[in-house]
Amino acid sequence: MAEVKLTGLSKHYGDFAAASNVSFDVESGSFLSLLGPSGCGKTTTLRMIIGFEQPTAGDIFIDGERINDIKPWLRDLGVVFQNYALFPYMTVAENVAFGLKQRGVEPAEIKRRASKFLELVGLPGKEDRFPRQLSGGQQQRVALARALVIEPRVLLLDEPLSNLDAKLRAEMRFELKRIQNETGVTSVFVTHDQEEALTLSDRIVVMNHGEVVTVGKPKEIWERPTSAFVADFLGVENIFAPDGFEPGAVVIGGKRFAAEHDGQGNRLVGLRSTDIEIGGDADAGLAGRVQQTSYRGSINTYVVDVPGIARPLYISTATDLPIGSNIVLKPRDGAVLILDPDMEIAAA
């Protein structure tokens, strides 16, 4: 098990910065996700750790050893790819044995360890199959076994679940977590799926435009996103500029709502559609008119026009609200998120 440390890692292609001043630590044995939209630099960062890309600046340390100049095939890292990247002309057993063969392990020992790891990933007895005879989920399990059997210092996963269908993806997510727990391998996981990052990680690094936006535990990032980009990426539906800030409160649509903030202006507020209450005292709440509704089963989402707020609000509630009805709404206590304005708010 090893600890990973990136300091000021950058990759420039001419004027374009694919990754810029990326720094974070991965504790030994922990699971860290690099989360962001495509082109945010997460894959570039991963490829620099693996050694497929040379950083233009900054350092990569594993257990305190600087590995920038170590050849990728000598770094002892396990890598799992989105498209599995199994050798099609080799059997499952041969695929898993590949890394051990490069290390000169005895054939009998290779066989023993390959079976052990195929069992770990839930594929015992599939040694003689070819990759094409397996389902996508099974192929990804083989890829995991192949990466883990060499007992890598760090396991690097590049969107490993993105090629699977929704049901299988959820199942593999639990499997991945179980396997990581059982092996205790330090893992870096690249994904654009916030749900995957939240459920799997000990810590999440959110990236955008090649830079680290925020680092934190899943609960922290989910409950207290610090910037508009993070909030938007985590699915906070309502992000807008408030009327203003008062000590211990934020003014929205002429009404005061309690919110902790540091008094700096120019901030945006975020409000999850599920954090808005309907009904109550008309003086304390905002008046709104239901414009649109979208049926989603037990909970429906409504688009509500609120005078004083530039954009209509999204509200999710079990209450049935007909289009055109007038309602009173207010944020749940402590639910108003104060956000750094690091992205453009689209006009309504």
Binding site: W73, F81, A85, F98, Q102
Partner: peptide, 18 residues
């Protein structure tokens, strides 16, 4: 050729000639 196959081999300890 899927370049990821070469990348996978490299990560598993295969040098360019291998």
């Amino acid at each position: 050729i899927d370049r990821n196959l070469e990348a996978a081999a490299m990560s598993l300890g295969a040098s360019p000639p291998v």
